[in-house]
Design a protein around this nucleic acid. Structure first.
Lengths: 130, 130
DNA sequence: CTTGACCTTCCAGTGACTGGAAGCCCTATG
DNA sequence: CATAGGGCTTCCAGTCACTGGAAGGTCAAG
């Protein structure tokens, strides 16, 4: 398979796939013409990576997850720990965004949004007081 | 005021303040020794920027907000529109993270987390099936 | 006069791509 | 058989908002 086909099937842009090769996540073969030549196993890895990335795992987490996946002697605890740590980070991020949203939503609702210059959003940013 | 004092008072690292000068958000004076010399108005702007950034506005949004703040003929609608657009982005991001969290949480709970290699997290990543 | 805490500039790196340029390769059509 | 197009290659630069670090100037205290 060439990169275009793989990109289609894995749902990843060709650029991303080349990047994953660059950083050593995959190692496709090379055809005589220099084109990358992907095996089923490469496609499989890319799909794995796509799903892990969609869950927000960092590239380094993905590297670890791939290694665990390919290590038949892994302990599921190692995978779970990684996922749990990531879950915690996501929950922290959600909490932070919710706090922003709450403040921002309040500000937006308190602003008339008309032609006049008076604006509680700017006042709040200027003074830190509501 | 020197940069250290301003950093303390505005709650921003000196590096960030220098960066804000670099990109033209503030324009402190210069002392004869070459040190930056901050006026109260600079401190005020930095505090404004700190609060806007804490609400997740991009630097470019901050630039616009500062300009609106300093324009006494602004329409509050312009501020509100900007804030509303940002709020929508935050809400989208929250929704996306919540979706990740839900999936991830389910996977984490379904994993035994012991010495055995069997791991539903890896199975899910490998196949996309639960 | 030295020490140590400031301050300065400049360069490079972060994460995970993404856009674009320059150029080679392959297939199909006129 | 020439060519047009689409796909492939590499490499470089840019994104965003800083952040770390090096090399060196400045200032106040002891």
């Amino acid at each position: 398979m060439n990169i275009g086909d793989v990109a289609q099937r894995a749902g990843l842009p060709p650029k991303t796939i080349r990047y994953y090769e660059d950083i050593g996540l995959i190692t496709p073969l090379r055809d005589t013409n220099g084109y990358r030549l992907f095996r089923e196993s490469d496609l499989h890895k890319l799909a794995f990576l796509g799903r892990a990335r969609a869950l927000g795992f960092t590239i380094e987490d993905c590297r670890t997850l791939l290694a665990l996946y390919e290590d038949n002697t892994r302990a599921s605890a190692d995978v779970k720990d990684l996922a749990q740590a990531h879950l915690t980070k996501i929950e922290d991020k959600i909490a932070q965004l919710q706090s922003m949203r709450d403040t921002l939503s309040e500000l937006v609702h308190s602003c008339a949004g008309d032609n006049r210059p008076d604006c509680p959003i700017l006042s709040d940013l200027a003074t830190g007081q509501h």
